[in-house]
Design a protein around this nucleic acid. Structure first.
Length: 421
RNA sequence: GCCCCCAUCGACUAGCGGUCCAGGUCACGGCCCUUUCAAGGCCGCAGCGCGGGUUCGAAUCCCGCUGGGGGCACCA
C-alpha cells in the first residue's frame, strides 16, 4: 500500500523555512515511495489565523515545486465530524464532559510507546498524560483531537513532523486507539536552528520563503540545501537535482540531531546553481527575477549584463547593487578618486578616440595608457572603475565600459575628473 | 521542577565493532590565476563532550554525567 503523508501548517503566519523543511521531507518521502503528499490547513483556532496566509503558504510551496495531491483540506471543515467522534467517545465512556468541554480519559499507569521512524523506540510515561480536552466548551475540537481524527479520515499512513510534536504523539495514539483506529507510523524530524544554536527566527536573517525568493535564491538550490539538513545520500554527494533527491531519499538516512541553518553554505550552493545555468537560462531567470521585484530595466541590457555577472554573484538579489550602474546614474565617492585626475584625463581622451568602441579596443587602449603612465594596470584601472561604476567592485571593466556606451562612459569619467581635481 | 529527544571538525555530514592515527562539502588560512570582485586550481587548519563498562578490539554497543533542544494550554 503506497504511503499517504501530509504537511499540516497552521495559517498563523508566512511559511517558515523550518516548515518547508518538514514539507520537503514529506514530499520527498511520498514521491520516493510513489505515495501521496497532502496539504492540510490546521485552522481550528480562527482567532489566531492571519489573513492571506493560506494563499501565501500554497504559493510558497508551489514556488519551491512542492506540489500536493488532491485538494487542500481545512481542519475547520471537519469540525462536525470531530464533534461526532467526540460524542461517540463520551457515549462509549472513554471521554467525558468537564465544564462544557469534552475530555479524553488517559491511562495513568504504564507507558505509551511507538517505534519512531527516525528515532527508534520512544516511551512516554502514561502518568504524564493528562485527560486532554478534545472539544472546547465552545464546540471547536482542539488540535490534538482534530489532527489524529483527520489523519484517520485522510488515511494518513506516515506522520512526519517536527520534534516539538513528540509529546503530542502519545496523546494522539491514545485518541486513535479509543476511536478504534490503528495509528499511523510516526517520525519526528529534528529542528532547524539558527547560527547561535537557538531556534531559527527573524533575527537570524531570512526566514520565510518569501524572503528567500525576494533575495534571489533559486528554488532548486533551496530545496537541495534543505534536503541536506538532516539527511544525506552518502559521504560525498552534495549537488542533487530534484529527481535525484526523490530517487535517493529514504527515511533510513534521516538523522535525529538538530541542524544549524548555514546561510554561507546556502549562498555557495545557490551560486553553484546559478553558474550551472546556460547563459540563456541565466538571462531569462535574472530577467524574470528583476521583473518580479519591480525593476523595469531594459531587457537587452539586462541580457548583455547577465553574461558579465553570472559567475560573480551568488544570488540574483545582488544584481541591482552590482550592475545597477548600467541602468542609472552613479554616485562617486570622491575620496576614492584622490590623486587620479591625470589618469582620468588620459582615459577620457583614450576612450573618445577609440574606433571601434569595443571591449577589445578598450582593453588595448587602457592597457597602453597604464604603460605610458608607468602604472600597474591594477592601479590605473581603479579610478576609472570607480568613476564609471561608482564602486571598486564591479563586473569586468572593459566589458562594462562597452556596455555602458562611449557617451556615458566618457561623461562619467569627465565628471569624476572634475570632482577629483 | 517534571517528561521526552539529541550529542563526530566553527557549520552540514559520512561512519551502522576491526578496512578510521576518522572521509566529503561550506566557512576559514595560504599559494596560483587575475583589471576589481568573483569563479577556478593547488595546499592547509580543524572533530569523535566526559567517565565508567561490554569486547581480543569502540567514534561505532550499554550505563551515568555534562551540555544542548523540545514539551508540560479549552495554541497549533
Amino acid at each position: 500500500m503506497p504511503p499517504v503523508v501530509r504537511f499540516a501548517p497552521s495559517p498563523t503566519g508566512f511559511l517558515h523555512i523550518g516548515g518547508v523543511h518538514t514539507a520537503l521531507f514529506n514530499w520527498l518521502f511520498a514521491h520516493h515511495e510513489d505515495g501521496e503528499f497532502r496539504l492540510r490547513i490546521e485552522n481550528t483556532d480562527t482567532s489566531r489565523e492571519v489573513a492571506e496566509t493560506v494563499e501565501q503558504i500554497q504559493e510558497s510551496l508551489l514556488w519551491l515545486g512542492l506540489d500536493w495531491d488532491r485538494e487542500v483540506t481545512f481542519q475547520l471543515d471537519r469540525m462536525e465530524h470531530c464533534r461526532k467522534e467526540a460524542e461517540r467517545l463520551v457515549a462509549e465512556g472513554t471521554a467525558y464532559e468537564d465544564e462544557g468541554a469534552i475530555r479524553m480519559r488517559m491511562p495513568d499507569e504504564g507507558v505509551t510507546a511507538w517505534d519512531d521512524l527516525i528515532r527508534g523506540r520512544i516511551e512516554y510515561p502514561n502518568e504524564k498524560l493528562e485527560d486532554v480536552v478534545v472539544v472546547r466548551a465552545d464546540g471547536r475540537p482542539t488540535y490534538n483531537f482534530a489532527s489524529p481524527v483527520e489523519d484517520r479520515l485522510d488515511s494518513i499512513t506516515h506522520v512526519l513532523r517536527g520534534e516539538d510534536h513528540i509529546s503530542n504523539t502519545p496523546k494522539q495514539i491514545r485518541i486513535l486507539e479509543a476511536l478504534g483506529a490503528p495509528p499511523p507510523e510516526y517520525g519526528h524530524l529534528a529542528n532547524i536552528l539558527g547560527e547561535d544554536g537557538k531556534k531559527l527566527s527573524k533575527r537570524h536573517g531570512a526566514i520565510s520563503v518569501e524572503e528567500f525568493r525576494r533575495d534571489g535564491y533559486l528554488p532548486g538550490a533551496l530545496v537541495n540545501f534543505l534536503a541536506l539538513l538532516g539527511w544525506s545520500y552518502d559521504d560525498k554527494t552534495t549537488i542533487m537535482s530534484r529527481d535525484e533527491l526523490i530517487e535517493r531519499f529514504t527515511l533510513e538516512r534521516v538523522g535525529a540531531s538538530p541542524a544549524t541553518f548555514d546561510y554561507a553554505k546556502l549562498d555557495w550552493l545557490n551560486g553553484v546553481y546559478l553558474r550551472a545555468l546556460s547563459p540563456e537560462e541565466y538571462a531569462d531567470t535574472l530577467l524574470a527575477y528583476l521583473r518580479e521585484q519591480g525593476f523595469e530595466w531594459d531587457e537587452g541590457l539586462v541580457r548583455a549584463a547577465a553574461v558579465l555577472v553570472q559567475d560573480k554573484i551568488a544570488k540574483l538579489g545582488d544584481f541591482p547593487d552590482f550592475a545597477g550602474f548600467l541602468f542609472g546614474d552613479v554616485e562617486v565617492d570622491v575620496a576614492l578618486l584622490d590623486g587620479s585626475a591625470s589618469v582620468l584625463a588620459e582615459a577620457e581622451q583614450e576612450l573618445e578616440s577609440l574606433e571601434p568602441y569595443t571591449a577589445e579596443t578598450i582593453e588595448a587602449g587602457l592597457r597602453g595608457l597604464a604603460d605610458r603612465l608607468e602604472l600597474k594596470p591594477r592601479a590605473a584601472f581603479v579610478p576609472i572603475r570607480v568613476a564609471v561604476t561608482g564602486s571598486k567592485v564591479s563586473p569586468g571593466l572593459f566589458e562594462s565600459l562597452e556596455l555602458l556606451g562611449r557617451e556615458k562612459s566618457v561623461e562619467r569619467i569627465r565628471n569624476a575628473k572634475a570632482a577629483a581635481a
